[in-house]
């Protein structure tokens, strides 16, 4: 973990209530896809934990949904705004577990951390298949970005207004895969856990205090002992999860 100042390079709305923000700054402490950053916002006491969508040496891409007053305020920040960011938080996904044909399943704002993961898997010569689940056509984002990485992409919407009608689990039943990676709302994670045919890594969300393992605000029980979602997670392996 490091505390760094990042500068907003660009910010755009890419779906209903969903914003893509590109920041410049030192990303050295980000070591795995699926990690997150924790951003201080003026006028709000706690930082806002946001998963890393993509990064290179000097640039960080975040995609977030305006779910409350803090993220709504952040979406109005102008280019050039400096942000106090704690980077390189959490464990992230482990690409060495993927096998040849990993399946990536993202739900809503659970989609962004899978992007850098997909990029890394492709770079390692793996053949990822991606299922992106949304509520409605207005919510869909990043379908083409994942396709551009070379992945096979399916999109599901709960109301059937775009792609396959239903949930991500409706699109995965006929697929052949070696391992799965997922991030999204907990009911989705649980549904995937129940129908998946292989092992996998699931990324969880919890209300956090510090984001770096000090306050015990986001603890959960696992078969491998108590874990802090922020520090020992957010990514847990299927076999350790207790629902």
């Amino acid at each position: 973990m490091k505390q760094e100042i990042f500068v907003i390079k660009s910010q755009e709305k890419i779906a209903k209530d969903v914003f893509k923000m590109v920041l410049s700054g030192n990303t050295n402490d980000i070591t795995a896809p699926g990690q997150f950053v924790n951003i201080k916002l003026d006028g709000f006491y706690l930082r806002r934990p946001i998963s890393v969508c993509d990064y290179d040496k000097n640039e960080l891409t975040l995609i977030y949904k305006t779910v409350g007053e803090g993220t709504a305020a952040m979406s109005k920040y102008e280019n050039g705004t400096e942000l106090d960011v704690l980077t390189g938080l959490g464990n992230g996904y482990d690409t060495s577990l993927s096998g040849e044909k990993p399946l990536l399943l993202g739900g809503g704002v659970g989609v962004p951390p899978l992007y850098n993961l997909c990029k890394k898997l492709v770079a390692e010569g793996k053949k990822p298949t991606v299922i992106l689940g949304f509520n409605s056509a207005d919510d869909v984002f990043y379908e083409n970005e994942f396709k551009a990485l070379g992945a096979v992409v399916y999109v599901t919407t709960a109301d059937g207004s775009y792609g396959i009608k239903g949930f991500v689990t409706d699109a995965m039943s006929d697929l052949d895969y070696s391992f799965f990676y997922t991030c999204g709302p907990e009911p989705m994670l649980k549904a995937i856990y129940n129908v998946s045919k292989t092992s996998g890594q699931l990324s969880f969300e919890e209300r956090m205090g510090c984001g770096f393992g000090a306050c015990m605000g986001c603890s959960c029980k696992t078969k491998y002992g108590n874990k802090r979602i922020c520090k020992d997670g957010p990514v847990l392996i299927k076999e350790e999860i207790i629902w």
Binding site: Y45, L46, G70, R207, C215, G217, S219
Partner: peptide, 14 residues
């Protein structure tokens, strides 16, 4: 059980 954390103006609940 979680949630164990809630934000407040100029503070937090744990």
């Amino acid at each position: 059980p979680t949630p164990r954390i809630a934000e407040c103006p100029a503070g937090m609940i744990n």
